[in-house]
Design a protein around this nucleic acid. Sequence first.
DNA 1: TCAACTTTGTGCATGCATTCACAAGGGCCT
DNA 2: AGGCCCTTGTGAATGCATGCACAAAGTTGA
Lengths: 238, 238
Amino acid sequence: MTAAKQAPSAATPRVRRGIPDATVARLPVYLRALHSLAEAGTSTVSSDALAAAAGVNSAKVRKDLSYLGSYGTRGVGYDVAYLVHQISRELGLTQRWAVAIVGIGNLGHALAKYGGFATRGFRIAALIDADRSRVGEWVNGVAVSHVDDMAEVVAEGGVSIGVIATPAGVAQDVCDRLVAAGVTSILNFAPTVLTVPAGVDLRKVDLSIELQILSFHEQRKATEGAATLLEAVEAVVS
Amino acid sequence: MTAAKQAPSAATPRVRRGIPDATVARLPVYLRALHSLAEAGTSTVSSDALAAAAGVNSAKVRKDLSYLGSYGTRGVGYDVAYLVHQISRELGLTQRWAVAIVGIGNLGHALAKYGGFATRGFRIAALIDADRSRVGEWVNGVAVSHVDDMAEVVAEGGVSIGVIATPAGVAQDVCDRLVAAGVTSILNFAPTVLTVPAGVDLRKVDLSIELQILSFHEQRKATEGAATLLEAVEAVVS
DNA sequence: TCAACTTTGTGCATGCATTCACAAGGGCCT
DNA sequence: AGGCCCTTGTGAATGCATGCACAAAGTTGA
C-alpha cells in the first residue's frame, strides 16, 4: 500500500493524526459543554449552540471537530453522546490514567481533594511528600508516601502522570525523580522553569503569572483614556 | 506633531504600545528569571543566558524585549536591575493591586496562603465566601467576609482584581457580582465558561483541562511506536 | 417527488507568532 | 587609535491559527 499522503484518491480511512495544539486545548472545553448538554437532556447540538456553550466561534468548532472526522449530520448537527465518545477517545480519556501528586502542602491538599480529576478519566494513585511527619496521613482516601519511596509507589500504582506542587527550590529534583521512576507527563505548579528529557511532556500552571498578565491589562486600562484621546488627536492632526 | 507611525524618521520617543499577547505572557517568566539572577549576584545578562533561564529561544527574548525599548547594550547584554525595573513597570507591578478571593474552600485557602502573590505586586485585600459559618475566620491575616457584603468589601479595599475559586454552579453569579462591585479583571478557577461585559478582562486556569491535554499526548506516545513504524514502512514502500 | 431550509465541512485570505540570519553598534585589548 | 570580537535589534521568511463565506449534503414539509 502506498502512503496515503501521496495518494489520497484511494479510500484510505485517514491520512494521519495531525491535530493542532490549539484544537487539542479546546477539546476538553467542548467535552465539558457536551456533558452539560447531555445532563440537560439534549441529544443533538449544532456547531452554533456548542460554540455558544464553549465561548468560542462556531467556525472554530466545526474546524476543530473536523480534525476528528466527519461526525456531524448536515442540516441537523452533532449527536451529543456520540461526540462525547469520540472526543473522549481522542483525548485518551477512555482509560483511567494514574496520577501522582508530589508536595502535599496547601495546594497539594486542594488538588488531592479536587473532584474534577476523579470525574474525568483520572485516578489519584499516590500522594508524595518530603515531610516525614506528613507521611501516613490520609487525604481523600489515599495515604501520603515519602518521597524516597517514589520509585516503588509510582511503579505499583502504574503512574504515568505526575503533578508537582512543591516549593520551587525542590521542583527540578522532584521532576528528575519522577522521570527516573518512569513518569512521562508532568504538570508543574511550582513557579520555576523545569527541564525534562525528550519524550516527556511538560505543562505548567503558574498562578502568579496569570495575575501579572491581568495586571498588565489593568494598567493599560488605567492609561487607556488618555492614550486613545492622544491617538484621536494625532489622527485628526496628521 | 504627525503620527509617528507614518513618519518614523523623526526622533519621536515611541510609536505606541502594541505589545503582542504572547510577549506579555512571557514577561513574567523573564522577570522571575531576572530576580533569580539578581539574587545570585549577576548584574548583566545576555539574551542567550536569559533565554536559557527562561526556557525559550534567544531570538524570542530579544524580540520580546525590543517591544519595551532598546534597553540592551550591544556586545554586553542587559543590565539585570534595570531590566527588572522596566519589565515591572510595563506589567504594572510598580503599584500593588488589591485582590479579592471568592470561595474559601480548599483551593481558596491554598491561594490565600500562597506566598507568590504577596511577593510580587499583589495584596490580598479580601476573602469572600457564601458559607456564614466560615465568615469571620482568619486566613493568613485576612478575615473572611460574606458574599452579601461583597460590594462594601471591594469598595473599601480598592479591589480591582477578583479571583473566583468557587464551585462551577455559582461562578457566573459571583462573577456578575464582582463586576457590579467594580472589579475589572477576573481570574477564574471554576471549571465553567464565564461571560463578562466588554472592558472586563477574564483569564481562566483549568486544572482538569491541563490534565486532559497531557492525557492526549500520553495516549499519542502509547501508539506512537506503532505509528512511526507504519510510516517508516509506508515511506520505504512508496 | 421536489423545493426550501438548515447545518456541516472546508478552501481561502488574513493576521499573528516564531525563527533565522545578519547588519549595526559598542566594548575591549593591543 | 584602531581593529577584533561579541551581542543586540530587526528585516524577512516560514508556519500556525482564526474566521469568512460558500458549496455540498441532508432534512422537512407540501
